[in-house]
Amino acid sequence: MSDLNTTMVNEYRSNFLKEVEANVEEGRWVKMCMQCGVCSGSCPLGPAWEHPPQEIFMMIRAGKRDEVLKSESMWMCTSCYNCIVRCPRELPITHIMHGLANYAHRLGLAPKMNPTRRFAKIFWDNIVKSGRVNEIELSLRLYFMDGFKNGVEKAWSMKDIGLGMLKARRLNPLGFVTHKGCKDTKGIHRMLKKAREIEDRRKGFAA
């Protein structure tokens, strides 16, 4: 069978739905959606979504794997939980959105340049390193992720906030030097590794 036919056969088949159920956090809830759209309407960032949650659920059922996993949409979620509170079917939509984003990321399908994804990555790397966030390093990495020139411009535009935080002692300018990790950094690393192994095994990712 040609690729085209395979795609066609997969349309509206539950292959992808089952994949989501198995591998995405709270993915088993996707099938419970009844397409009322209250999640999409309640989302404060709604207008910014290419595909709002309810549509993503329909796309999953329609077998639109690539379109969903490559979408920027679920990266828009800011965890306000409005959708969860309103959903008449009690779907944990916030969690599903994060689950889908995470899954797409793990598969390498998530849009590479999506700022939320990149921030999350920077944040993760930062926190994992010592078991604690190094705030100054995190901010600078974030500002300079698109190159030096961009970084300077971004930092400059945020200077008032930065100075304010310094004054209020909410940011330690010497963080690079004075940052202390947690007591058992190695222990944290072992824990995370183990967790990753379990997750990979459960979701069928190659180790």
């Binding site: 066609m8 056969v9 349309e11 509206y12 549509e55 329909m58 329609a62």
Partner: peptide, 12 residues
């Protein structure tokens, strides 16, 4: 498909 607004949706 009225939700995804695909007039020529198919299930094979």
């Amino acid at each position: 498909d009225l939700i995804l607004d695909e007039p020529a949706a198919t299930m094979a």
